[in-house]
C-alpha cells in the first residue's frame, strides 16, 4: 500500500482527521472514512452528478477531487442539509412533488437544486433544466424534479433556507 497523508476534512460543520492515500477521491473518503454514505457514486468520471457536494458553498463533483485537496474547505453533504423530521425545503418539495423514484440521484439533485435556487430565487422550468443538466436521473423523466425545484424555490422565497 502506498503512503498515506493526513488531512482534516470539515464536513457538515465537524472537522475530522483522516489518513488517506493521495489517490483517494473526496467522494470515497466521505463514504468510507467518514461513513457518510448519502453521497452517492454513479459514474465516477464527472458525468452523472450523483456525488455532488457543496465546497465552500459551491457545487463540486466529489468524485473529481482528491480527498487531500479538500483540507481547509467547508464541505456540505446531503446529511448536512437535513434529516428525519428536520428537512430542508428542497427535500420536502422533492418528497411532496415526487421528485424521486429510486432515490439514487437524489442527494446530488437536492444539492444542485439548492445551488440553483441560491443563485436564482425564481428559476423558470427551462432555467432549471439547463442548470441541472449535469445531474442525471434514470427514473423520473425529470418533469417531477423540475416541479420539485420550482416548488422549493417558492417555499424558500418565503421561509428562507440556504444550505
Amino acid at each position: 500500500m502506498a503512503e498515506t497523508m493526513s488531512v482534516v476534512l470539515n464536513v457538515n460543520g465537524a472537522g475530522r482527521s483522516v489518513s488517506v492515500e493521495p489517490r483517494k477521491t473526496l467522494a470515497d473518503a466521505i463514504r468510507e472514512d467518514l461513513g457518510l454514505t448519502g453521497t452517492h457514486l454513479g459514474c465516477e468520471h464527472g458525468v452523472c452528478g450523483a456525488c455532488t457536494v457543496l465546497m465552500d458553498g459551491e457545487v463540486v463533483r466529489s468524485c473529481l477531487m482528491l480527498a487531500v485537496q479538500a483540507g481547509g474547505a467547508e464541505i456540505t453533504t446531503i446529511e448536512g442539509i437535513g434529516a428525519g423530521d428536520d428537512l430542508h425545503p428542497m427535500q420536502r418539495a422533492f418528497s411532496e412533488y415526487h421528485g424521486l423514484q429510486c432515490g439514487f440521484c437524489t442527494p446530488g439533485m437536492i444539492l444542485a437544486g439548492i445551488d440553483v435556487v441560491s443563485r436564482n430565487p425564481d428559476p423558470s422550468p427551462q432555467e432549471i433544466r439547463e442548470e441541472m443538466g449535469g445531474n442525471i436521473c434514470r427514473c423520473t423523466g425529470y418533469q417531477k424534479i423540475v416541479e420539485s425545484v420550482q416548488a422549493a424555490a417558492a417555499i424558500m422565497s418565503t421561509e428562507g433556507g440556504s444550505a
Binding site: 493521495p22 489517490r23 477521491t25 465516477e44 468520471h45 464527472g46 463533483r61 468524485c63 473529481l64 477531487m65 482528491l66 487531500v68 485537496q69
Partner: peptide
C-alpha cells in the same frame, strides 16, 4: 500537473493516465 481536475481526474479514475507523480497546483 493537476489543475481543476475536471478532465485529468476522470482519466486517473479510468487509469487512462497513470502519472508517477502528480503536482497539484491548486
Amino acid at each position: 500537473v493537476l489543475a481543476g481536475g475536471q478532465s485529468l481526474v476522470p482519466m486517473l479514475n479510468f487509469r487512462l493516465a497513470r502519472p508517477a507523480h502528480l503536482i497539484d497546483v491548486n
